[in-house]
Amino acid sequence: MFFVRTASEGDLPKVSALLAETWHAAYDAIYGADKVSEITAQWHSVAALADRLKRKDSEFVVADDGKTLGGMAYAAMSKTEPMVAILQQLYVLPQYQRQGIGRDMFAELETCFPDAKVMRAEVEPQNAAAIAFYEAHGFERAGEASARVELPGMPALVYEKALG
């Protein structure tokens, strides 16, 4: 059984590996393995994750069963919209998907931003599994991203969920 807890610096190498695995599983067919490797090396490096871990007005959680990190999620308050929390990452290892880990991590993040009225996520338009997850958890499509947080220049659908 996985428990959701706040990530620590000691988790970051495992989180980096988790992100590489989940990104290759989800995005190799869309972007190609080389591009996914390039993105994960930069955006999911231990140093990049450490910066997120230290950011104020954010929450970084992992799903831990005592032996394995099965998932991770990260959200932060928007720097430009004071009532918006941005769900920047929510990933579960492929072998643990559809077991409620993503739901549990998301439920934890929903409670971490008392000033937020909305949680927003950007989703790759071809990632049907992610779209289904967000829609199943109360998100509604709110448009398309013109300046994507995670992958500048790449298309994204914007989903939002009212909080509170």
Rank of each mutant, 00 (worst) to 15 (best):
90 L>H: 08
137 H>V: 02
85 A>D: 03
100 G>Q: 04
140 E>M: 12
123 V>Q: 02
88 Q>N: 14
108 E>S: 11
129 A>D: 14
128 A>Y: 10
112 C>I: 00
86 I>S: 11
116 A>W: 09
138 G>N: 00
137 H>I: 00
127 N>C: 05
120 R>V: 11
81 E>Q: 15
110 E>G: 03
83 M>Y: 14
92 V>R: 00
116 A>K: 02
136 A>L: 02
109 L>A: 06
133 F>K: 01
86 I>W: 11
100 G>N: 04
101 I>A: 07
127 N>R: 04
108 E>C: 10
105 M>R: 05
117 K>G: 12
144 E>P: 03
131 I>Y: 01
82 P>H: 11
88 Q>T: 08
114 P>W: 14
99 Q>I: 01
114 P>K: 13
83 M>S: 15
105 M>L: 08
85 A>V: 13
95 Q>F: 07
112 C>R: 15
94 P>M: 04
120 R>W: 02
138 G>S: 03
103 R>V: 00
103 R>K: 15
139 F>R: 02
135 E>Y: 05
88 Q>D: 12
114 P>D: 07
112 C>F: 10
134 Y>G: 00
126 Q>T: 09
122 E>G: 00
142 A>K: 09
119 M>T: 08
92 V>K: 08
143 G>K: 07
97 Q>G: 05
109 L>M: 07
139 F>K: 04
112 C>M: 14
85 A>S: 13
101 I>C: 06
141 R>M: 12
96 Y>T: 03
110 E>S: 10
124 E>A: 11
100 G>P: 07
82 P>L: 05
139 F>G: 01
121 A>T: 10
140 E>S: 13
110 E>W: 05
104 D>K: 13
110 E>M: 12
131 I>E: 02
113 F>A: 01
111 T>V: 05
111 T>E: 09
143 G>Q: 02
100 G>R: 03
94 P>A: 12
110 E>P: 00
102 G>M: 06
131 I>A: 10
84 V>C: 10
120 R>D: 03
145 A>H: 03
132 A>C: 04
129 A>P: 01
93 L>S: 14
97 Q>M: 11
126 Q>M: 12
100 G>I: 08
140 E>I: 15
93 L>W: 05
105 M>N: 03
125 P>F: 07
121 A>S: 13
97 Q>T: 13
86 I>L: 15
106 F>H: 11
132 A>K: 14
143 G>P: 00
95 Q>C: 12
123 V>D: 04
87 L>R: 06
84 V>F: 10
84 V>K: 15
125 P>G: 05
126 Q>D: 13
144 E>W: 05
140 E>F: 09
134 Y>C: 04
138 G>K: 02
111 T>F: 00
103 R>H: 13
